[in-house]
Design a protein around this nucleic acid. Structure first.
Length: 323
DNA sequence: AACTTCAACAACCGCCTGCTT
DNA sequence: CAAGCAGGCGGTTGTTGAAGT
């Protein structure tokens, strides 16, 4: 037979989470680590279903999440990836490690969709036909799994993970994680978590309640699960992480970062400020075989989109009809 | 000041896949 | 091998605050 039922729906609380519930959940995860969500409501006494607990943790409570204030660069990435992958928000979110799929999805639905609609309307009047380097062409270079199978998008992460070589810089390594993961920069779970977020409602103003719990997870050895929020990997060494600066660690950017078993680490812990380092990065970059989508991410296209989006913000859009 | 409309986003719902028993 | 659940994902709804009338 199968597993016992997750949680009976009778007596399950719905609606917004209270600070008390958040603290209970965070405290529990602090002790036991994320995972085994079925046990969470049972052991904590929370009148929430396991799914709700997981969602609350994944989208709002876990350290390392940035909320709101999407940069133009991030917008460009989202727009471009959406044009390639469709509404596969988890896949898109894997390229923006500090963003959750839910956040990206909401941002798309409330901001970007309108923005693009507007731009399309403008483009229909003013824009020339799409250039040869349109998304269709780019998509043609992607691994088949990327654009063929909507229900198996996780396989494209696998494909990416498998196609990406790993480079051991010896900065940090976690034996708990598979051989894919070789280096990460340890980052304080609370380092600038949502530092610049400002919101009035509880769910947003408490956008990371774990900050309230000093030393969260500090004592716990990093496991395959709890390392996730603390690391990030850079596949694009020249990607602008302007809004992430000051965190005390270089951030990582990795396909499938949300899926633990898929965390190949390509680079880490390197400053891109000086030219020597930049050349070093370029060398490294050339040494690393990248799969198509990563190559694409390194392509100028994303920047072009970002630039165009920026232009369009000024009210004079000439965005090519990529979408 | 009161009411209506709009925007933003948190959270729920249902489906799918893979795993456990 | 099959049944059935957990976890993950995307779509959608509900709630709240801001802006407009």
């Amino acid at each position: 037979m199968g597993r016992p039922p997750c949680c009976d729906k009778v007596g399950v609380k719905k609606g917004p989470w209270t600070p008390e519930e958040d603290i209970i959940l965070v405290s529990y995860i602090q002790e036991n680590g994320p995972g085994n969500w079925r046990a969470v409501p049972i052991n904590t006494g929370l009148m929430r279903c396991s799914k709700s607990c997981r969602l609350r943790w994944t989208n709002y409570l876990r350290p390392g999440i940035r909320r709101g204030n999407f940069t133009t660069h991030e917008e460009g990435i989202i727009v471009h990836l959406q044009s390639l992958l469709g509404n596969r928000w988890a896949a898109i979110a894997s390229y923006l490690p500090q963003r959750t799929d839910n956040d990206i999805k909401n941002y798309w639905n409330t901001h970007l969709k309108k923005k693009l609609k507007k731009q399309q309307a403008m483009g229909a009047i003013f824009a020339p036909p799409p250039p040869p380097s349109s998304s269709a062409e780019t998509a043609a270079n992607l691994p088949a799994a990327v654009h063929l199978d909507n229900h198996h998008h996780r396989y494209h992460h696998d494909a990416i993970a498998a196609s990406s070589s790993t480079v051991d810089h010896g900065c940090y390594s976690n034996p708990e994680i598979t051989q894919h993961t070789t280096i990460t920069m340890r980052r304080s779970p609370f380092a600038d978590v949502a530092a610049d977020c400002s919101s009035s409602s509880y769910a947003s103003s408490m956008d990371n309640i774990s900050r309230l719990l000093g030393g969260f997870m500090k004592s716990s050895p990093p496991t395959a699960t709890d390392v996730k929020p603390n690391i990030a990997v850079v596949t694009d060494p020249f990607m602008s992480f302007d809004r992430i600066s000051g965190t005390g660690a270089e951030l990582a950017f990795v396909p499938g970062v949300q899926q633990l078993q898929q965390q190949p680490v390509l680079m880490g812990g390197i400053s891109y400020d000086d030219e020597a380092t930049r050349q070093q990065q370029q060398q490294l970059h050339h040494q690393l075989p990248l799969c198509s989508i990563e190559k694409w991410l390194l392509d100028e296209a994303a920047e072009q989109v970002a630039d165009l989006m920026e232009l369009s913000d000024g009210g004079c859009s000439s965005l090519p009809l990529l979408y």
